[in-house]
Design a protein around this nucleic acid. Structure first.
Lengths: 219, 219
DNA sequence: CCTTATTATTAAGTATGCTTAAAAATAGAA
DNA sequence: TTCTATTTTTAAGCATACTTAATAATAAGG
């Protein structure tokens, strides 16, 4: 499997998980920074290999073996993130950037070594679940997405699901970190804008960010 | 720079260092497991980029920038080897196999982190020197190649310059490890075969292996 | 020195993963 | 529902990194 194919499959998986996103060729193309034509082309190739279900003009979906492949790459990505964070103390953005490259050149053998070294972690430093070798993923059912978390309550940040440096910079500058306490205030603009209070500071966030931040009731 | 180009440049560098080897297209092709035609093709492309000197029907040589690129890849390779050996306790063959993949996806940023974590090592677990960021390499002038080491004397193994699993298996099975003591005995077959004594066991090695083993007088 | 064997090069062809441009299908708005 | 805008697909083309087959040059042996 090539890097391009692994990233294509991984992108489909992540779009399927994401809120308010679809897996149409154009969406995948935009996420990967390639042309729509290239995405259509790749969709046909991966369908021929039995990794995705592809019907012309329809959103693509992963087959079971495609899903397993996505999870294999994601497992390696998140193990590297946890490792680079733990051992070298890299930032949230740095671990993502480096893991994005290393994930494709990591043998199952090495992934197991990293996993054992870290004592089989269940989440990476972003709070993303680390899939097991058999493809099982445990999503915390306590996690609420900030864009839909009931107002008035106080929560702890449990997951920062972004990947862009801009997002992590914003989080850092505004004390939004895993474990940080925040209160959800009013919603404006038909729920597109959420008011939060964090360390006595009021912030207005739109869905670009509230769809990437997860919270839970207890720390 | 692509993986293919990095490996081509790296192979030229290693062939230049090796004993009884040349850097003709066919030799490079054999080392990389590609056809002679592909090697000629790549030679032309890299010459166009100013990384190698290529004249038809002549052995190729690295330019200064080609040499720096080879050393950059080699630095990352050997830092990974040292790291995987130290942190995960992988074998001599395993560290090589994994580093062979990781070396091409390692940023200078990450290489520096690994280097600092290991306290700026000067050699990897095989005894190979780790090039510095500026491209300087310190070869121990005390190292003697076993195929040319004067007979009758006792030495310590200082470097195992192979990469094949077969070579490392042989070394392990015969107690040839970095720091091990050995005595050079008679030479036969016009110097092609060297008798050594290691832990009271006599061994006959040919140049396939004695060109890959380095020794020195003091531990 | 000449013949032969080896090696290197060129030429033609293939798969991958992209691109842009044009055509076809779908989705959205009036 | 119809028109238009958007999206998807197809088509043609390109660069990379290989292949095999044929040709050319070099190296080696007698």
């Amino acid at each position: 499997m090539s890097v391009s194919k692994e990233n294509f499959i991984k992108t489909i998986y992540k779009l399927q998980q994401g809120v308010g996103q679809n897996t149409r060729p154009g969406t995948i193309a935009a996420a990967l920074g390639i042309s729509n034509a290239a995405a259509t082309d790749m969709a046909r190739k991966l369908a021929a290999r039995g990794l995705i279900n592809y019907v012309k003009y329809q959103p693509v979906t992963l087959t079971e073996s495609g899903r397993l492949m996505a999870l294999d790459v994601l497992r390696k990505h998140r193990l590297w993130e946890a490792f680079l964070f733990e051992v070298f103390g890299l930032s949230m953005h740095e671990i993502h950037r480096e893991a994005e490259l290393l994930e494709h050149q990591t043998s199952v053998f090495l992934a197991e070594k990293i996993d054992a070294f870290l004592n089989n972690p269940t989440t990476d430093p972003h709070g993303d679940p680390i899939p097991a070798t058999d493809g099982s993923v445990v999503f915390s059912n306590k996690n609420l997405i900030l864009s839909e978390a009931p107002a008035g309550a106080t929560y702890y940040v449990s997951r920062l699901a972004g990947s862009e440096e801009e997002f992590f910079d914003f989080c850092r500058d505004n004390k939004i970190a895993i474990g940080a306490q925040l209160t959800v205030g009013n919603r404006y603009n038909a729920g597109q804008t959420t008011e939060i209070v964090i360390e006595d500071t009021k912030l207005l966030l739109n869905t670009d960010f509230t769809n990437l931040i997860y919270v839970k009731q207890n720390q």
